[in-house]
């Protein structure tokens, strides 16, 4: 295999592996920008994945499957928003319980929604899936061609990223969103409804996360298996920090992590002497490494990227 072809194939896998991460990362950036930390991503992704696959399996409609995943993700996020905004619950514990509940329920549904012939299990079923669409001419270019031989959800990411960036930094609602996350008191005084904003963007984040989950079960690894996400929901939390809460940079982290997956895949195929377990540890160890470097760098440059009010409930009467 020529070097160019190798690079091209690694890039193609990277993009496919990174798509679900980018959806969830952009979603979580918006949520955190409003001041809400959502650690429930893993559970929301799993729920999005299982419901999307079940819908596609029975209705044969991929688009309906996406809609269902978006709604399911949004509903779980709405629960998180209700607990954190209205009931002022601890955001860390609320997010963790969403993840516990979501992964438990996804596993439950995976063993109940399947056809009777398979003992109601969804595992092992084959349903419709998104297949790569080759864009004429562009897809046959060396290296860059990898960008144009992807499924439709990956193409949508190319649109989502600049839009998400533009909305956050160049529009009035984007400014309001940032204000709420930085200083809810001032935002409130400016006439922005802090609670409503937080609900809105937490739900939006959940919808995008559900979509990310759907990409896993409909395109990246079509089908449903227990713990399909393999901790991706948690990696996304690290990617948000890696992107320094800027949706424009979300692609860097996602590509880095997608890239690790791709390289690992290649190494395994080539039969290296390194046991698979150690290769599989790479994404997790890299996350820790990235966190340490980012924390150190942030402290060094005094450029704090985190929304100042992140994780804090807003109570109008208190201060």
């Amino acid at each position: 295999m020529s070097v160019l072809a190798l690079i091209s194939s690694i890039l193609a896998i990277t993009l496919r592996a990174g798509t679900s991460l980018i959806y969830a990362t952009v979603g979580e950036i918006y949520t955190e920008r409003s001041g809400i930390l959502n650690l429930g991503l893993e559970g929301m992704m799993l729920m999005g994945a299982v419901t999307a696959f079940a819908t596609a399996f029975y209705t044969k409609s991929l688009w309906l499957a996406l809609i269902v995943a978006v709604i399911v993700g949004g509903l779980l996020a709405a629960l998180h928003a209700f607990l954190c905004v209205t009931m002022r619950a601890n955001q860390v514990v609320s997010g963790l319980s969403i993840t516990l509940f979501g992964s438990g329920l996804a596993s439950f549904l995976g063993q109940r929604l399947g056809p009777a012939s398979n003992n109601y299990f969804l595992v092992g079923m084959v349903g419709p899936k998104f297949t790569p669409i080759q864009i004429p001419v562009l897809s046959s270019l060396p290296v860059i061609g990898a960008f144009f031989n992807q499924d439709i959800l990956t193409y949508l990411v190319y649109l989502l990223m600049p839009l998400a960036w533009f909305y956050l930094y160049k529009t009035r609602p984007g400014l309001s969103l940032r204000a709420v996350g930085e200083n809810p008191q001032t935002a409130d005084a400016m006439g922005i409804d802090v609670g409503r904003t937080r609900y809105l963007y937490t739900i939006l984040g959940g919808m995008l996360t559900g979509l990310g989950g759907a990409h896993l079960s409909l395109a990246y690894t079509p089908g449903w298996t227990e713990n399909l996400t393999g901790g991706r929901g948690w990696i996304v939390i690290a990617l948000v920090i890696f992107a320094m809460w800027n949706p424009g940079r979300a692609v860097l982290g996602a590509v880095l992590f997608g890239g690790i997956n791709a390289v690992q895949f290649r190494l395994q195929a080539a039969g290296t002497a390194i046991p698979a377990a150690f290769l599989n540890m790479l994404p997790y160890l890299t996350t820790i490494f990235v966190l340490v470097v980012m924390t150190w760098w942030e402290a060094l440059s005094k450029r704090i990227g985190a929304p100042a009010a992140l994780g804090k409930a807003y109570m109008r009467e208190e201060k």
Partner: peptide
């Protein structure tokens, strides 16, 4: 013949009213 994850689901569901109730 129900999935054993029913126990996990119940565990998760205890937390939501707890969190809401802590207020």
């Amino acid at each position: 013949g129900l999935p054993a994850s029913m126990g996990l689901v119940l565990q998760g569901m205890i937390l939501f009213p707890m969190l809401a109730g802590s207020l």
